[in-house]
Design a protein around this nucleic acid. Structure first.
Lengths: 185, 185
DNA sequence: AGCCATGGTGACAGTAGCTGACAATATGCT
DNA sequence: AGCATATTGTCAGCTACTGTCACCATGGCT
């Protein structure tokens, strides 16, 4: 029954999260996930390219939101300032997804295969940020480098932000920027 | 015939490189590689955890060499200077491996699965550099951040260095450091 | 109402990556 | 020679993932 398509996808995501939590990534088969979602294994692989992707479905939207924020940042901003501007604008989105990303992180921390996938997602994000910087007129060579530095800064800031709920992301970013200045001096 | 163990491993590496070049990563099976190396498929997986690892065999040695160089850098050096010191010391090793890494890079550029593996190798390198910095007394939080920034700097520098054979890696690193200062200002 | 194009799905078969268990054989030491 | 150890071969098996085709629900068109 091809109900809506999107419904089955949501059920598959939910089933994936639950089973990975209960039995771990390696011990849960794609067939199990499909069965719990009420579809066939074949349908699972129609919605997600592989078993890992089911855990990273919202990532594309986040990436595109960040890229748009970089492009639409005030034109007189330096590359790094444009990135930081975009990161600050993402704080509400990150805050909203917090309850969902927290259990997911625990699963990821427990399985190397998922950590590997996180790295490619991060690389994709860096590439998108580099693209966005290029649309702002930043040169080809330096845009990727700046995007990498920016992403490292964001990771550093979000780490501290997640660990200490009293912090705001913006404040955490300021600290990270200060640490970066210290290194490069 | 359990000849030497290391011999079979070398043959497997060689066969892997050749077949990936000829037919591409996806089109070559582990059984084919094993057959060309004169062993069984089972033996292939005893030497390498998966099909990708056969392409990244020397990486552990490179990582450890870099980490040692960071630890043994003059104690009064700043974290970033210690990293740059280690990177400069690796130039001969990189130069020596150049004819081997060049065809490998072409294969990697053509196959996403291998690019994903490169990212985990890079992450491992960053972790090792962070560890080495901690052994120099750098604080837990900042060491990983510094290692990330350092790795981004090295990538940027090696890119330019590989593209222009008249450059030395040390000179390329100086330019990268200047770019970094520009971003973080 | 009937019809058709579209798209999601089930069913089935098949390939290949990867693993566990056990036997067989070569190597080094005594 | 004899023994311990390391490496490999053999076999059986699971599961991730893919190609193909038929099926059926939905929405628009006449």
């Amino acid at each position: 029954m091809p109900r809506s398509g999107a419904e089955a996808r949501r059920r598959l995501q939910q089933a994936t999260l639950e089973l990975f939590q209960q039995k771990g990534f390696d011990a849960t088969t794609a067939a199990e996930i499909a069965e719990r979602a009420g579809v066939t294994e074949r349908t699972f692989f129609r919605h997600f390219a592989d078993k890992r992707e089911a855990l990273f479905d919202g990532e594309a939207a986040f990436r595109e939101a960040l890229a748009r924020a970089v492009v639409s940042a005030p034109p007189d901003m330096s590359p790094m300032d444009a990135l930081l501007h975009a990161f600050r604008s993402a704080e509400p989105l990150l805050e909203k997804n917090r309850p969902f990303t927290e259990p997911r992180q625990k699963i990821i921390d427990a399985t190397p295969a998922l950590q590997e996938r996180v790295l490619t997602k991060t690389a994709g994000l860096i590439a998108a940020l580099g693209d966005a910087l290029r649309q702002r007129g930043v040169e080809e060579d330096t845009s990727t480098f700046a995007a990498q530095i920016g992403m490292a800064t964001l990771s550093y800031a979000t780490h501290a932000w997640l660990a200490d709920p009293t912090l705001t992301l913006a404040a955490s970013l300021v600290k990270a920027q200060a640490a970066l200045r210290r290194f490069s001096s």
